[in-house]
Design a protein around this nucleic acid. Structure first.
Lengths: 120, 120
DNA sequence: CCGGATCCATTAGGATACTG
DNA sequence: CAGTATCCTAATGGATCCGG
C-alpha cells in the first residue's frame, strides 16, 4: 500500500529528474567513469549537441545530482561528477535497467524482431 | 558496470513507458485497487480530462502494461487493470517512490520549506 | 459512460553561428 | 574548451464539442 498523502508526488519528482533525452546516458557515463570533462561527455555521446548537453547538465546540477567543477584556466576545463546525493539514484537507475532488459525481450515477443526500437 | 552494448537503451525504454503526465498516478491507483473503471479513475484523478486519461491509458495498453476490458452493454463499462507483465514495473515504481521520499526532504534542505512542489 | 475529433498553447529538442 | 544566443520544429498536453 503505497498511496495517499504526498506519496504519488514522489514518483513524479523522480521522473522529473530523470526525464530528458540525454540524462540517463549522461548519468550512466558519470556513474561509470566517476568524473568526466565536458568534451569527454561529448565524445562519449556523439549525437548530442553542445547546447543540449549543456542544458541537460545544468538541469541535473540544479537538482543537485551532479557536480560542476570549473577550473579557471585557459583553455577552460570543466569536470562533471555525481554528487553524493545523486548516488542515491543508482538503485532507481538499476531497477529501470533491469526492467528494461526484460522489456526489450518482451518487445520481441509482442512485435517480432523486425523493429529497431520502440519509438514511433 | 552496467554499460556498453544495448544497456543504455534499457533505461530509456523504461522511461518511455512511465513518462506521461498521468501515467504514474494511473499505475499507482491500478496497483493499489486492482481493477478500476474509467469513471473511477476519473474520480480518483480529478484534474485529468477524459481525453488525456484515454490517451495515457491507451499508451499503457499499447505497451502491454495494463489490460482494457470492455463490457458490451449499455451504458458502456470499461475496466482497467495491470497486466501480469506490468506487474514487473512495481520494483521500478517502488524504488522511484523510495527515492522520491528522501528527495522531497532534500528539497526542503536545498530551498527551504517555502515551495509547494518542484515544478517550474 | 466512454470515448473520438479538432484545434490551440506550451514545452522540449535541435541547427547553426558566435564568444571568452 | 566550453559554452551562449537565436531561431526553428516537433512533440506533448489541454479545451471544447461531437457521438454511439
Amino acid at each position: 500500500m503505497v498511496h495517499e498523502c504526498k506519496s504519488k508526488r514522489t514518483v513524479e519528482t523522480a521522473l522529473e529528474i530523470l526525464v530528458g533525452k540525454w540524462k540517463p546516458v549522461i548519468l550512466f557515463h558519470l556513474i561509470d567513469q566517476g568524473t568526466l570533462r565536458f568534451s569527454e561527455l561529448q565524445r562519449l555521446i556523439p549525437d548530442v549537441t553542445k547546447k543540449m548537453l549543456t542544458t541537460q547538465l545544468r538541469e541535473l546540477e540544479y537538482h543537485d545530482i551532479i557536480n560542476r567543477k570549473v577550473y579557471a584556466q585557459i583553455p577552460p576545463k570543466v569536470e562533471y561528477s555525481i554528487t553524493e546525493y545523486g548516488e542515491g539514484l543508482k538503485p532507481v537507475l538499476l531497477s529501470m535497467h533491469e526492467w528494461g532488459l526484460t522489456h526489450l525481450d518482451h518487445l520481441d515477443d509482442l512485435y517480432g524482431e523486425s523493429q529497431e526500437t520502440i519509438e514511433k
